[in-house]
Simulated scan of single mutants.
Amino acid sequence: MTDHNEHSGLAERRGRIVIDLSEYRESRDPMPVAFHRLELNQILRVYGRMVGEGEWRDYAIDHLRDRAVFSVFKRSGDLPAYTIEKNPKLAQKQGAFSIVNTQGRILKRGHELAQVMKFFDKVQKLTD
């Protein structure tokens, strides 16, 4: 404990300010939006089912400053067939979760991920 205080005093005497690195990171670069574990479980459950049926083959997860995106691909080199997005800024409005197709059209939006993910149950029934 004494080393820390000595170093802090030395830095202050030299005209420097000691800042905790974690505080600096939080103030400078806010944490990106991410899916929580339970949300990822719901998404991966549907993804696994669709992979088993041969509909989807690959996925990507992006954690951006304003939203988190889970993209699913029919083939690895293509554009994503669907993106499942979490945008906390829309939580009080239309709902934080949405499913978007390749053209950028919002196919389903809601406050609860489980309800939004039911969209893929209907897609499966339409293709059968």
Rank of each mutant, 00 (worst) to 15 (best):
residue 52 G to M: 02
residue 8 S to R: 09
residue 55 E to H: 15
residue 48 G to R: 03
residue 28 R to L: 15
residue 85 E to D: 02
residue 61 I to Y: 03
residue 128 D to G: 13
residue 20 D to S: 06
residue 3 D to L: 13
residue 33 V to H: 01
residue 72 V to M: 09
residue 118 K to A: 06
residue 45 R to H: 00
residue 27 S to M: 06
residue 72 V to S: 07
residue 90 L to D: 09
residue 52 G to C: 04
residue 55 E to I: 11
residue 79 L to K: 12
residue 118 K to P: 05
residue 48 G to E: 08
residue 30 P to H: 00
residue 77 G to P: 06
residue 66 D to R: 10
residue 38 L to E: 04
residue 44 L to M: 07
residue 126 L to F: 14
residue 45 R to A: 00
residue 78 D to S: 13
residue 46 V to H: 01
residue 14 R to M: 12
residue 120 F to C: 04
residue 47 Y to Q: 01
residue 7 H to Y: 09
residue 89 K to W: 00
residue 113 L to P: 13
residue 91 A to D: 15
residue 52 G to H: 02
residue 13 R to F: 00
residue 110 G to P: 04
residue 124 Q to A: 10
residue 113 L to F: 00
residue 11 A to S: 13
residue 64 L to N: 09
residue 105 R to D: 08
residue 120 F to Q: 03
residue 75 R to P: 07
residue 74 K to Y: 12
residue 119 F to H: 15
residue 96 A to D: 00
residue 66 D to V: 03
residue 80 P to F: 12
residue 128 D to A: 10
residue 122 K to F: 14
residue 113 L to G: 04
residue 91 A to Y: 09
residue 103 Q to K: 14
residue 27 S to P: 05
residue 125 K to D: 15
residue 67 R to W: 08
residue 39 E to K: 03
residue 35 F to S: 05
residue 56 W to S: 01
residue 62 D to I: 00
residue 7 H to Q: 11
residue 66 D to E: 04
residue 4 H to Q: 09
residue 14 R to K: 11
residue 44 L to Y: 01
residue 89 K to Y: 04
residue 50 M to I: 04
residue 17 I to W: 12
residue 76 S to N: 10
residue 87 N to T: 10
residue 59 Y to F: 15
residue 41 N to S: 09
residue 120 F to D: 02
residue 80 P to D: 07
residue 21 L to I: 07
residue 88 P to S: 03
residue 93 K to M: 08
residue 84 I to N: 02
residue 4 H to S: 00
residue 119 F to K: 14
residue 34 A to C: 07
residue 56 W to N: 01
residue 128 D to T: 13
residue 83 T to S: 12
residue 26 E to H: 15
residue 79 L to D: 12
residue 6 E to L: 11
residue 40 L to G: 01
residue 113 L to H: 07
residue 100 V to Q: 00
residue 44 L to F: 10
residue 70 F to R: 01
residue 108 K to F: 05
residue 81 A to C: 10
residue 105 R to F: 09
residue 79 L to Y: 11
residue 128 D to W: 07
residue 66 D to I: 08
residue 44 L to H: 04
residue 115 Q to F: 08
residue 96 A to K: 08
residue 69 V to G: 06
residue 33 V to W: 03
residue 78 D to M: 08
residue 85 E to I: 11
residue 2 T to V: 14
residue 22 S to D: 13
residue 12 E to I: 15
residue 15 G to S: 12
residue 51 V to F: 01
residue 52 G to E: 00
residue 70 F to Q: 05
residue 44 L to T: 01
residue 125 K to E: 15
residue 65 R to L: 12
residue 44 L to K: 01
residue 78 D to H: 14
residue 64 L to T: 06
residue 101 N to V: 02
residue 77 G to D: 03
residue 67 R to T: 13
residue 59 Y to E: 08
residue 51 V to S: 01
residue 38 L to W: 03
residue 66 D to Q: 11
residue 44 L to P: 04
residue 50 M to P: 00
residue 31 M to G: 05
residue 70 F to V: 02
